[in-house]
Design a protein around this nucleic acid. Structure first.
Lengths: 218, 218
DNA sequence: CTCAACCTGGAACGACCGTTTCAAGATACA
DNA sequence: TGTATCTTGAAACGGTCGTTCCAGGTTGAG
């Protein structure tokens, strides 16, 4: 074995992910990547390939490191509606406060840009949507088993609607809408679905609380 | 009066709007604008200013020509819930079929991109959101007056939720999701709000019907 | 017709784009 | 230590970016 890489691939990909996440793919130049990561073009191209492949890798990492755990936690939470309340509560918190405030969601952003032209990217967007939808459906079916849902509410359809609502939250948070407004909107929606009186602690509208919520992960 | 412009400003701005709408601001070069409009750089810069101002003008035009009439029609429709059904039905139709299929919504797209960094753009995004929200709320209050809503449904909160849902529809349609899925999701949401049996004709899930719906306006 | 005012075509600007190339440096095994 | 193999630094590639400039054409008023 001759020479070994002088940098950590995961750390680099994490930095690149943040760049693409905040500024999008087209607005992020290779020079920006070079500056942010500290390594040079040769190492970048030798390790990740061209810009498109680099973006795909960053997007995959976002899906695995950011979205994935959230979805899994939601699906495996046995509390039913409170789990969904908390899911949205944490989402809004992460979108409005901390390191990634006003960055939105990299998946949502990819939908709106030229990034979605790449079939490989679009396949990932579809896959992520299905994962979110299924996690929500699982939680809703749990809620249904606990008699938390209004009669006549179909977990499948509502899961789809909530997944679309998530994209709306991501988009609007990027425009700088405050967390309180988003919390109220989501809480009203979930209360309409069913759970009167079963609110999780993630969505108490109250005053916004930026202090304790800083530097949370997404 | 010396010389007069040799082209129509509105027609040009319409062409530019379509470019920015489909490809976003950063991915659309001045050369693309020159090619698409047929006029040259001098006339463009003399008439609209630089690229940022050109984008702002195109976005304003989108809001006035595309979103505005839709919102007004929704708010002035006296039928209540069926008006909302039809609003979403036409939205989905325009997002999935015809000339602008898979373009999404220029306002939604602007949220996700670097475009939203411009304060003037962000002010427009907020204004458009409020217009949509208020139109939905007006329609919901009409529906409430007609006893079409489930008891305990607050028109204000639901209007916010439906406005966010709209962004979700726009985003997902850009990724190529089929109209039938979107219609089912929206229909299920609106049925949960209240109007069992009051569906408008815009959301009958059925098979997708691309033929009759081509070349609709957005 | 004269002429000042405006518009148009096209070339040109410097800066930056993503990508490639290549010599020099670093490493593990013989 | 020699050497094959990979990494790194830095320069350079052609192309495109947004923008500006100016000569030449066109218009309407005097």
């Amino acid at each position: 074995m001759p020479d070994i890489k002088h940098f950590d691939t995961d750390t680099t990909l994490d930095t690149v992910m943040r760049l693409f996440w905040r500024n999008g793919m087209v607005s992020t130049g290779i020079q920006d990547v070079v500056t942010a990561t500290g390594l040079n073009r040769s190492s970048l191209y030798a390790t990740f390939g061209d810009k498109q492949e680099l973006y795909r890798a960053a997007l995959r990492r976002y899906a695995e490191q950011r979205s994935g755990p959230r979805f899994r936690r939601l699906a495996e939470d046995g509390r039913g509606l409170p789990a969904i309340f908390d899911f949205f509560g944490e989402l809004i918190e992460a979108c409005c406060y901390g390191e990634h405030a006003r960055w939105g969601c990299m998946i949502s952003n990819a939908h709106a840009g030229t990034e979605s032209g790449d079939p490989e990217v679009r396949a990932l967007l579809d896959r992520q949507y299905l994962e979110l939808r299924d996690s929500l459906r699982t939680a809703l079916m749990t809620a249904d088993g606990l008699n938390q849902l209004e009669p006549g509410v179909d977990p499948g359809s509502v899961a789809d609607a909530l997944a679309l609502l998530t994209h709306g939250v991501n988009l609007r948070s990027r425009a700088g809408v405050d967390a309180r407004t988003l919390r109220e909107t989501v809480a009203a929606t979930l209360n309409a679905i069913g759970g009167h009186g079963t609110e999780g602690e993630g969505l108490t509208p109250g005053p916004s609380r930026p202090a304790e919520a800083r530097d949370r992960e997404v």
